[in-house]
Design a protein around this nucleic acid. Structure first.
Lengths: 272, 272
DNA sequence: TCAAAAGTGTTGAGTCTACACCCATGT
DNA sequence: ACATGGGTGTAGACTCAACACTTTTGA
């Protein structure tokens, strides 16, 4: 009798060719742009963590942090492990961006990547890790040009990385992104673009925006996050009425800002 | 000098343990429930393709069609190949559902699955394939019980498969589904649930609903698809005004239905 | 005093919901 | 004739964008 146990004993998964499976993580925070003008609120810029590759392939190019998943962890666990290795901090939010599986995306061989978007409420200090010669936070700027073309710019101190991206939809309705150059390692420009689209779509539904802020925040800072991610501007009076259903008051206030103190709010728990 | 070319020559990806990568496809159509009562519109039921496993593991259990991806294809290409092998028909819509990577999800070893949701405008005839002893379309019924618990029922002729599903959210905000039994092979109940959530969320935004219908359709049939996927009912007068922005008239009409002929519409192309 | 942000009120436009009502058909 | 779905009209509720206006603070 051919039992499942017998079958599994004789089954050898090693017989077949297999790809490697990796995760790449786009880690974002809002960087507070220092501005010493009295009373003026600081500007917040969307900031992305990149590492400079210390080894081939793409040695010297900037890339997303990431690595291979282990045989005893899920892709989510692998992503968390990688990002904690890089920043020593657990993120405040984690989103699955998607799978990137183009056959030639990695010159080392067939490597399929599961991309994640992680969000930190405060920007962790980063140090060069094992396989990275350095790590830096880059300000992110994405502009729509026309005809489904976008311009992505990443800037850190004197380093500026720029690439054009083209968005298309296959006949079956699957979105595809194509970077026009190799400024970033692998297909990481495309992964970053997908992350930004994901964050934008979620921000429009008032999701993920709280992950960029501490537990207690002002409605103006929430609006700044919303505007940065959605690439839009909102009228404060209307914005605060709209988000009212997602937040609850605390009895604390800001102080020392040179203008009327703002009440601090927290995210309303959406249980029940 | 250590060039990238030298590096790649000496790099052997075979050194590391690797998982296998598969795709599983949830293929859906709307089944028109035959009803010979004069004038009455037929009811449409959401229908899902399952195969009965002919081999271990889970021999004799029902499962989603799928298989391993090849080294020369993307996961999307693999999913299309698998579904065409099974149905001989290319789907009208394809969506990426997500990655399923629990370490013990497959007793044969570490197998990571990329799940897809595919939609057919007309239900293809299916025959038992190579590794399936039979294949059938099952009517899908998902009910919310309470406390983030759902009841999934799949029915085909005299076969009924039922399982409870529990939805939870991890501390980082990642959704997790857990099936309460093994009525379906592997974690396929969980994959099916994720597909249904995806279709529901898209239908609410009037996405994917057109893939269930032929090129020209009546607004009532569109409403039926919308209601089936969103588990809601709508007032016809209001529904037709709301979808007006997504459709355009043709000059054709239905006939022979025993009531006033309905104008046929087509999906408005959302270019420009 | 005053610039800047915090916060409230209002108005008019637009959208959504529910429901009344007529139309066209084929047995 | 009439049941059935196709289709339009409309009143009231509700939502939303725009903008005027008041409040509070710290140099």
């Amino acid at each position: 009798m051919n039992s499942e146990k017998d079958f599994l004993k004789s089954y050898s998964i090693e017989k077949y060719d297999r790809p490697s499976v990796a995760t790449d993580i786009a880690a974002f925070t809002m960087r507070i742009e220092e501005d010493n003008s009295f009373r003026k609120d600081p500007v917040s810029k969307l900031s992305l963590l990149l590492i400079e590759r210390g080894e081939h392939p793409y040695k010297g190019k900037w890339a997303l942090p990431g690595g291979f998943i282990r045989m005893d962890e899920t892709v989510v666990e692998g992503a968390v492990r990688e990002i904690v290795e890089e920043t020593s901090v657990k993120p405040d939010g984690l989103l699955y961006t998607g799978v990137f599986s183009k056959v030639d995306r990695d010159p080392r061989g067939r490597i399929i990547s599961n991309a994640f978007t992680s969000v930190f409420s405060t920007q962790p200090k980063v140090l060069a890790g094992s396989d990275a010669s350095s790590a830096k936070w880059f300000d992110v700027d994405l502009k729509y040009i026309k005809d489904d073309k976008y311009l992505l710019s990443l800037q850190s101190d004197e380093i500026v990385l720029t690439t054009e991206l083209h968005l298309s939809v296959s006949d079956l309705g699957i979105n595809e992104v194509k970077a026009e150059n190799d400024v970033l390692a692998f297909d990481h420009a495309e992964i970053i673009f997908s992350s930004l689209q994901l964050l934008k779509n979620r921000a429009l539904r008032f999701e993920s925006i709280f992950d960029f802020l501490p537990e207690k925040f002002t409605l103006t800072s929430l609006q700044k996050v919303y505007e940065t991610l959605t690439l839009s501007t909102a009228v404060p009076a209307n914005f605060r009425r709209k988000v009212n259903e997602y937040v609850e008051e605390t009895d604390e206030y800001t102080k020392g800002a040179g203008h009327r103190p703002a009440k601090l709010f927290r995210k309303k728990s959406n249980k029940i």
